[in-house]
Design a binder for these strands. Sequence first.
DNA 1: TGACATACGATAATCATTATCGTAGGCTTG
DNA 2: CAAGCCTACGATAATGATTATCGTATGTCA
Lengths: 146, 146
Amino acid sequence: MTQQETSQFRRICEQAGLAVTHQRQVIYEVLAATDGHPSPEEVYARVRRRIPAISLATVYKNIHLFIESGIFDQVSMHHGSMRVETNRAPHYHLVCTGCKSILDMEGGLPGLKEIEERLPRGFRVERLAVDVVGVCEGCQKQVVVQ
Amino acid sequence: MTQQETSQFRRICEQAGLAVTHQRQVIYEVLAATDGHPSPEEVYARVRRRIPAISLATVYKNIHLFIESGIFDQVSMHHGSMRVETNRAPHYHLVCTGCKSILDMEGGLPGLKEIEERLPRGFRVERLAVDVVGVCEGCQKQVVVQ
DNA sequence: TGACATACGATAATCATTATCGTAGGCTTG
DNA sequence: CAAGCCTACGATAATGATTATCGTATGTCA
């Protein structure tokens, strides 16, 4: 965590109206440094390496604050627990119903314009979540084996 | 439930390898007759009007069997509990983060062709889930009031 | 520095969902 | 159509994820 990063984090907190705390900063840094779509438990595990005494509740509370402030997003789940979207670039997801993996596909989606043109009056779009749901190559083989 | 519907249900069960039971049929009929995206609790409430002694666990088990068999889908949640997709037509969702409502928008999904061209080798697509996440007109007003 | 607001940690509580298990009912075969 | 097997049912305990509570500690601002 360079001084640059710290001052950037201070700016983020100021905009969101959040106090700057050590725990909050480490949670932020862990999220920003994590590829993929970590669950709160995974975030907790990583943060504990730097703050062993941190509480799981603190991790949950801060993840929610970040999501409410739009600093991170939430991945829509086709399974179990919540996941944090740490990828800020436009992309969509390949979701495997077998192994529950979520793979990012970079780049915009075709056909977005048409969708946006047809929105009902007054609906304010925050983001677009597109998931291609199916079965990955590995899981297709496993089903045959079973 | 006409005789036609019953024989249709028998066919569905046969294809899925499921026994034909009264409870299962009522759960199926309730799902097929429900607009929107009912939660298991909502399904339970409706089914109980016809089978007061049914167990919530039975409702959950059958919903899962239907989803596994592809008879119904699961809505990806941007909040709370699971929901069943009872709309068999291609459509996408408007999800309000305020009131948690899910509105169906018929037709006009992004071009599957372009997406499929970019898929990794071996991924078998089952369905496409497109959710436009935002705030509906009503909830935007309420926020101002608060 | 002092006062107040917010955050933290520990843990209890809640909520949705799943597992267990004994009984009942559907389904196939003789 | 009876016997036996397999699946399903109902009741309820257990689980797992998330949230609420509350007393203490820390950040913020005058």
